[in-house]
Design a binder for these strands. Structure first.
Lengths: 197, 197
DNA sequence: CGATGAATTGAAACTTGTCAACGGCAGTGG
DNA sequence: CCACTGCCGTTGACAAGTTTCAATTCATCG
């Protein structure tokens, strides 16, 4: 199946009938408050599983940033597969554990890091992810908008923009294009990120 | 096994050799930054599983707030048990999924809610947890200090204290004792919590 | 080339944090 | 039995980081 950019294919609160596996593209996962405030809990790329929710309804929404291709299984089908292939269950547990660790790291970021530390941490984690595909490029590609970054880091667009500008002024990064960041000084950037990453 | 109050029985970064199941008491789970800033990612009570980390080292620390009793299994023993009882794997996946949903809710709180909304949300979720034991009491017991609450909500002790005082002034809660809160107006409190909870 | 939405930049306002003082309660020891 | 001590929680005044509001610039695309 495929979802064009901007398309919401999982809706917070809807009956959790399906289970997804993203095969290409990027999606934002988020929760919303009644007044429209939004918290992006993560970005899901190639290989990401969605819909682990145990309860009857999804706890988050998912929206394509870039065109997303995915496989969709009904919950019933998933149960069948779990019974047929016990290894899958092990794999899912592993995936869930990894996400839990990532979520805890993000809680630390949201609860205790400054704006500068958040943005630096974000760039570094993105760089790691990019490096997994292309070996060691200093380039980081940001498929999401500033608004997405802000909602992921618990900041406003303006603060994200100002912070990037400031990091650029300090020669830690370059910004050839809003969606393209170059890490000029990885060590220096890491020093601004607060933690060890 | 047992851990007296204040005892750290899981240390962030240590080799993740063991797996825990808490049988009584309450522990705080947290991550720290090099300069001492701390984010409590959750409070673990009776029945809680600890140590799901897939990597070789714990991603968080755990410290007893009240005296804690727990069962401890080596990772090897856990693997054995998982092989012998496939149902356990299903259960763990369920547990991990639940924690993931809770973590996402907490990210929303940390990234997008105001201090007042955070404290109100915290009291309500605590009340739910208390209600699970004792039926419908308006009383909420807080075994943790203000410092713990602050580090859980991404605030300072002072802000937590002020906010509680303010909620009391608005007749939404009563504070007979620092560790004992009475919810006087649940609906009103929920309205201050931002979300649906 | 003009239009539209995204990103940047500036100034002012506000929420929360910081620093400091005070009060209360518990445990200790004279 | 009562001062003493230390920790925890509360309160106040002020500072600071981030948000809000507004204007401008920049990219993309028909």
């Amino acid at each position: 199946m495929t979802a064009e950019a901007g398309r919401t294919f999982v809706n917070e609160g809807d009956s959790a009938d399906n289970f997804f596996n993203i095969t290409s593209g990027t999606a934002r996962l988020f929760k919303s408050l009644p007044d429209g405030r939004r918290q992006i809990t993560g970005f899901a790329g190639r290989g990401h599983f969605l819909g682990l929710a145990v309860s009857n309804s999804y706890a988050f929404s998912a929206e394509a940033i870039e065109p997303v291709q995915y496989c969709r299984f009904s919950r019933i089908k998933l149960r069948q597969m779990l019974d047929d292939f016990p290894a899958l269950e092990k794999r899912l547990l592993e995936v869930a554990s990894n996400e839990l660790v990532a979520a805890q790291e993000q809680m630390l970021l949201l609860g205790r890091k400054t704006a500068r530390e958040r943005v630096a941490s974000f760039l570094l984690s993105r760089k790691l992810e990019t490096a997994a595909c292309i070996s060691t490029t200093p380039h980081v590609h940001l498929p999401m908008t500033r608004s997405d970054i802000a909602d992921y880091l618990g900041l406003t667009i303006e603060t994200v923009s100002r912070t990037l500008t400031s990091l650029k002024a300090d020669k830690l990064i370059g910004i050839p294009h809003p969606a393209e960041i170059v890490v000029l000084n990885q060590t220096g950037l890491a020093a601004q990120a607060g933690g060890y990453n």
